[in-house]
């Protein structure tokens, strides 16, 4: 898979639901359509719920990757304003 270079990175390690999504949403709102956000998190439930909520909000989830025992990276492309 080609490497995707994110336009912005967000570290929400230590946060739990719903603040994991609140933070992610506020950050993607501040970006331009077409830009990619990389989210780094360590709350397991959010590794499922953030991609689902981002899709519900009309954005495109490009990748969900478990990078070690406790951390995930999610890449989301902003699709609408």
């Amino acid at each position: 898979m080609d490497d995707i270079i994110p336009n912005k990175k967000l570290d929400i390690r230590g946060l739990k639901c719903p603040y994991t999504f609140v933070r992610s949403k506020l950050t993607i709102e501040s970006m331009e359509p077409g830009q990619v956000l990389e989210i780094l998190l360590d709350y397991q439930e959010a590794s499922n719920s953030i991609p689902k909520s981002m899709e519900d909000h009309g954005h495109k989830v490009l990748r969900v990757e478990k990078i070690n025992a406790t951390e995930w990276i999610i890449l989301v492309r902003k699709e609408n304003d």
């Binding site: 719903p18 603040y19 999504f21 609140v22 933070r23 949403k25 506020l26 519900d56 909000h57």
Partner: peptide, 14 residues
């Protein structure tokens, strides 16, 4: 962000 979090997560508000 905490105070208004239940508004922010609504697609209609944010």
């Amino acid at each position: 962000i905490l105070r208004y979090s239940r508004h922010i997560i609504l697609p209609e508000i944010g």
